[in-house]
């Protein structure tokens, strides 16, 4: 059965691609960014040649929480107990260097590792890495054993401790399953950038950069080529796709 929607969008894409000079990304309107090099037609699977990543510039990050707030709003994980049973997909961590006393603040979320330990340990295969490197929980089959939470070195995952109401249409959440940052896969698949990055940009800080790490022409790759980045717990060799700069 042919799909009208697919064909239409394919046609548009083809027209678009024939004329398009491959550029890394362009802003149509604030918060609406197109990644032409990676744009993927509806009906096609995530591309294994893509590795979505984030680069976070700590020198531009102060103690604001717009990224956290934007994520809550976008994905609807606002808890109301105020304790550690609430979900927290992204959090701001305040750091103080034990020697110099220098303070800094940075967001921490799922690092979308190339070799994610959560995926290794999940007994049923609910923890999974998409072809384009985004690590997700398949809540359809998650049994809620929480072994992935034991295995994650970043404390990035949350277990849903109570019944959930008022979920976002694009983001199902349910009691008894584990969840974490999806790198806004629902937005990325629609050629949008993750909500946290969008909010950070909109706040004027521009501390977060999103893009394809495997495209040498992407902004993020170019930037990474210029500077030396920090991967959290690099000693573990998990190759996280979220990286930091100016630590």
């Amino acid at each position: 059965m042919s799909n009208i929607r697919d064909n239409d969008i394919d046609k548009a894409r083809r027209q678009f691609m024939t004329g398009a000079v491959a550029t890394a990304g362009m802003t149509i309107a604030p918060g609406f960014m197109l990644y032409t090099a990676e744009a993927r037609p509806a009906g096609t699977a995530a591309d294994p040649k893509v590795r979505w990543g984030l680069l976070i510039d700590i020198s531009k990050c102060d103690d604001c929480t717009v990224c956290v707030d934007a994520c809550k709003k976008e994905n609807g994980w606002q808890g109301h107990r105020g304790d550690l049973t609430d979900a927290q997909w992204i959090r701001k961590v305040d750091l103080k260097d034990k020697n110099t006393g220098v303070k800094s603040s940075l967001p921490v979320m799922c690092m979308h590792c190339e070799y994610p330990p959560c995926v290794d340990v999940c007994p049923v295969g609910a923890s999974m890495k998409r072809a384009d490197g985004i690590v997700l929980v398949d809540k359809h089959i998650c049994i809620g054993c929480r072994y992935c939470m034991m295995a994650c070195p970043y404390g990035a995952r949350s277990f849903v401790h109570e019944e959930v109401h008022g979920q976002k249409t694009h983001l199902p959440r349910g009691q008894g399953t584990v969840e974490s940052c999806t790198m806004c896969a629902h937005r990325v698949d629609n050629d949008q950038i993750p909500a946290c990055v969008e909010a950070c940009n909109a706040s004027g800080r521009e501390a977060m950069m999103f893009g394809n790490l495997r495209d040498p022409n992407s902004d993020i790759s170019k930037r990474i080529a210029e500077i030396s980045t920090v991967k959290l717990r690099a000693d573990m060799g998990l190759d996280p796709h979220v990286q930091y700069v100016n630590f």
Binding site: N3, D6, A42, G43, D138, H140, H170, A185
Partner: peptide, 18 residues
């Protein structure tokens, strides 16, 4: 379709719960 969408990232097919 749920498996296609979640696990493979295929969007825009017709049989979605949404």
């Amino acid at each position: 379709q749920r498996d296609d969408t979640l696990r493979k990232g295929i969007r825009g097919n017709p049989f979605s719960l949404k």
